[in-house]
Design a protein around this nucleic acid. Structure first.
Length: 535
RNA sequence: GAUUCCGUAGCUCAGUCGGUAGAGCACUUGACUUUUAAUCAAGGGGUCCUGGGUUCGAGCCCCAGCGGAAUCACCA
């Protein structure tokens, strides 16, 4: 008790000082909440008690599973959850004088609680109900309750409260989002800026936000389970790299003080995973947070997650089969079905997926057979198709442009686009039978690329030449061409087994599996401009 | 990076022709012992994003800036 008072005094001084300094910066409701906090302390109640609060059940469990039977004489017999202890945020109060209904929200959901004055205050002293519960508690406060489950007159499973304890006071008013009997949401908290900046508030008040992120976790868990069960090894490779390799993109640059060298945040982890294949691992994977210093929009965040994996002694045909199996399982585990509703389209991840060569795809959607064309011929086609080109584009880039502009968006159901031109694939092995092509596929879903895979180039002499071609592209003005990574070449010279590798855009996959139109909706904290003033 | 739209109470939003700043929820006070968008009565709450300009007068018109969203470009 003595300790409690000392603690209370500390909080008193602290709260008092904040009040005097910042009172004119606080809203009326924030001042009232601070005053309520002080009154709770004055009543000898610690508004932030340190000890654990024992929880026996979740709100959802009780709400879903409570049962009672009506006996012949009309009385009710309550069958389960007759001694429960739960905790959460107070989210709504419907006060009726000496009794009250409220809604308590824990991590599982909400349940209605029934608080009756004479049940939580059995003696003469009604302070806990009249003062603490009715006046000093606010929406958003954490409380713990003990009681028993029952069904209200209208049949809603609820908890009749017999004990109530303050667990943590909330000093800011939450947006109040209400849902009526028809399921219409009123006063929704919708401002994207507020939702992303204060994701914690979004998660508290907006139904479904938490589910989206839980689905994302389910999807990732499913993929990890698939890979682990197959014998793959999860690894970590450097985020800070002195040569930003493995992809064509503009990196973030930083500086290491002790070494006095520039370092780049990784744009991909491919070259490091291949070094591990050289080192003797048969199958490695990494969920890699990659960083690219490029534009931001509905499908791009400066940091994003890619799953890459590399498997020794396999080729890209094997990889297509593995991809189908993995995604079919991920869809099942995430949504309970291989079919996913994405916008107005239904996408079925059931294996197998169609395979279309990039030349056939272009022919189908433009009528042009570009397979035999040289650079000049391709430029003519681009002009006729009204596709902008510039001098830095080589043959491969031009083909990629035509595909991206005219064909890509047509592939709604999962489709492997296979056999790309060699110029745009400097890390990919030459095609075993089609000259000028490489053994590469991209998986298109809903008109967007979600995965990119190769039969990996393991010929070190060929690889060195490809890097040198990239240097030529860079000299032509292509600022996304790759740097030469000499240590990576050295590792290949020791010998890398035939290998197939793949990268999946995990955020994009999450967008598909959760039917979200923007990457911001599947990232807890999407990148935003910093706030000017302190919140 | 370009274009368009947006910024008003804690939240969601109105705001007419340029003439005293509005609603619902939330909040405060009161009533109510099975309510559920609880209800009923009364009340308080504003740097109209910021800074300039035009005007007798600006939430509104003009300019610049800040922040956000959408579309486009680049990219996964």
């Amino acid at each position: 008790m003595h300790n409690l008072l000392v603690l209370g005094q500390n909080i008193y001084f602290c709260a008092f000082q904040i009040d005097n300094k910042t009172k004119n910066m606080l809203s009326e409701q924030e001042i009232i909440r601070r005053e309520n906090l002080q009154k709770i302390i004055d009543l000898g109640i610690d508004p932030y008690p340190p000890e654990l609060y024992e929880i026996t059940h979740s709100a959802k469990e009780i709400k879903d599973n409570y049962q009672e039977e009506v006996l012949e004489d009309g009385t009710k017999n309550r069958l389960n959850y007759q001694e429960v202890s739960i905790a959460g945020r107070l989210m709504m109060v419907r006060d009726m004088g000496k009794a009250s209904f409220a809604e308590l929200q824990d991590s599982s959901g909400r349940i209605q609680i029934y608080v009756r004055r004479d049940d939580i205050c059995p003696g003469e002293d009604k302070t806990l109900y009249n003062e603490v519960y009715k006046k000093l508690l606010d929406i958003g406060d954490f409380i713990g309750i003990k009681g028993y489950a029952f069904k209200t007159k209208v049949g809603e499973n609820s908890i009749h409260v017999t004990e109530l304890k303050v667990l943590a006071k909330s000093l800011r008013p939450l947006p109040i989002v209400k849902t009526d009997a028809e399921g219409n949401v009123h006063d929704a908290f919708t401002d994207p800026e507020l939702r992303y900046r204060q994701r914690y508030v979004d998660l508290i008040v907006n139904n479904g936000v938490k589910e989206t992120f839980l689905k994302r976790t389910k999807m990732v868990n499913s993929i990890r389970e698939f890979l682990n069960d197959a014998g793959a090894i999860e690894v970590d490779t450097p985020v800070l790299q002195s040569i930003p390799g493995g992809a064509a993109a503009r990196p973030f640059i930083t500086h290491h003080n002790a070494l006095d060298i520039p370092l780049y945040l990784r744009i991909a982890n491919e070259l490091y995973l291949k070094r591990l294949i050289v080192g003797g691992f048969d199958w490695v994977y990494e969920f890699s947070r990659n960083f690219r210093n490029e534009g931001m929009d509905r499908t791009h965040n400066p940091e994003f997650t890619v799953l890459e994996f590399y498997v020794a002694y396999k080729d890209y045909f094997w990889m297509m089969e593995t991809t189908e199996k993995m995604l079919e399982k991920a869809a099942m585990d995430t949504n309970g079905s291989t079919k996913v509703q994405v916008g107005d389209k239904e996408i079925d991840f059931k294996a197998p997926y169609k395979r279309v060569s990039i030349y056939d795809a272009i022919k189908e959607y433009t009528g042009y057979d570009v397979s035999e064309m040289d650079e000049d011929g391709l430029r003519k086609v681009c002009k006729e198709l009204h596709i902008e080109t510039d001098a830095s584009m080589g043959r491969g880039k031009l083909i990629d442009e035509i595909f991206g502009e005219k064909a890509e968006h047509n592939f709604i159901q999962p489709t492997f686009i296979i056999d790309y031109p060699i110029e745009m694939s400097p890390l990919t092995k030459k095609h075993r039978s089609k000259p000028g092509l490489v053994e590469r596929f991209e998986l298109m879903v809903n008109g967007k690329e979600v995965a990119n895979a190769y039969t990996e180039l393991n010929d070190p002499i060929d690889q060195r030449e490809r890097f040198e071609d990239q240097v030529k592209l860079m000299e032509r003005g292509d600022d996304e061409a790759m740097y030469i990574d000499h240590d990576f070449l050295r590792s290949l010279e020791y010998g890398m087994p035939p290998t197939s590798g793949i990268g999946f855009g995990i955020d994009r996959l999450a967008m598909l599996f959760t039917n979200q139109p923007s990457i911001q909706e599947v990232l807890f904290f999407p990148q935003m401009r910093p706030e000017k003033k302190d919140a």
